[in-house]
Simulated assay, not measured.
Amino acid sequence: MASIFSRIVAGEIPAHKIAETEDFLAFLDAFPITEGHTLVIPKKEIDYLFDLDDALYTGLFQFAKSIVPALEKTVPCLRIGVSVIGLEVPHAHVHLLPLNSMDDADFTKKIKTSQEELATLAEKIRSNL
């Protein structure tokens, strides 16, 4: 069965997309822990980050890095944090987290946001790419 991220790539599930290439996709987390919480994935479904071949692994992080300036321009923060956990969805992914304190990296706390707010935020981030 395809992961939820593969279903987003296939267009079966909507997402608030930030950027996309032939191999990678960045979109806002539907259940963010900070404003601007972005997920960056390879389009190819591979469960474990360290199972990616070298080209896909480095490409994923280069693509993630390309999103950071737009996030910094859009969401006031001290820096963009990066987290790789990989237990919640069986599809390799990187979390980009606008951070102002270590408390902002608490994955047990979600912020409340509407689909309209996410859509507006995604548009603002895209406009800063």
Rank of each mutant, 00 (worst) to 15 (best):
A10P: 08
A64W: 09
A26G: 03
T34V: 12
R7K: 15
L121N: 01
G59K: 12
K73I: 07
E88V: 13
L39M: 06
E35K: 08
K109L: 11
N128P: 04
A105D: 02
S101I: 13
Q62M: 11
V75G: 11
A55P: 00
L56K: 09
L87C: 04
I46K: 01
H95L: 06
E123W: 10
M1F: 06
A26S: 07
T21L: 06
D104I: 13
A122H: 04
I111H: 01
Q62E: 14
L78Q: 13
G36H: 03
V9Q: 08
E117Y: 11
H91R: 06
F63A: 07
F63R: 02
G36Q: 07
I67E: 07
E88G: 10
A70Y: 02
H93E: 04
G36L: 03
F24E: 07
I8M: 11
P98G: 09
L118P: 10
L60F: 12
S114G: 02
L78T: 03
A26K: 04
P69G: 06
P69Q: 04
A55V: 15
H16P: 00
S6Y: 01
T38A: 08
H16V: 03
V75L: 09
A15M: 13
A19E: 09
I80C: 10
T58A: 14
H16S: 12
D47Q: 09
F31S: 12
A70V: 08
I4V: 15
A15D: 00
A92R: 00
F61S: 01
H95Y: 07
V82Q: 14
D51G: 07
F27D: 01
S3H: 02
M1Q: 06
C77W: 07
L60Q: 03
P90I: 06
V9Y: 11
H37W: 01
D23V: 00
S114D: 13
I41T: 05
L99E: 05
R7P: 00
A64G: 10
P76R: 03
L49C: 05
E88L: 11
V82A: 14
R126C: 02
F61H: 13
K43R: 08
Y57G: 08
E20H: 02
G81C: 02
D106E: 04
S114H: 10
E22V: 07
I41H: 15
R79T: 09
I18E: 06
K110Q: 13
L71C: 13
S114T: 15
L99P: 02
N100W: 09
A64C: 11
R126H: 08
V89A: 07
F63Q: 00
T58I: 15
K44V: 12
P14M: 01
P32E: 04
H16I: 05
P14L: 01
R126D: 02
I125K: 07
T38I: 04
A122V: 09
S3E: 08
P98S: 15
F61E: 02
E72Q: 15
A19S: 11
Q62R: 15
T38P: 12
K44P: 10
V89D: 03
L129Q: 05
F27C: 00
T108G: 07
V82P: 04
K110H: 10
L25A: 03
S6H: 03
D47N: 08
E22D: 13
A92Y: 12
V68M: 11
V75P: 14
Q115L: 14
D51N: 14
P90R: 12
I125F: 04
T108K: 14
I41V: 15
A92Q: 12
L60C: 13
D51A: 14
F107V: 12
V68E: 15
V40Q: 09
H95P: 10
I85K: 14
A15R: 09
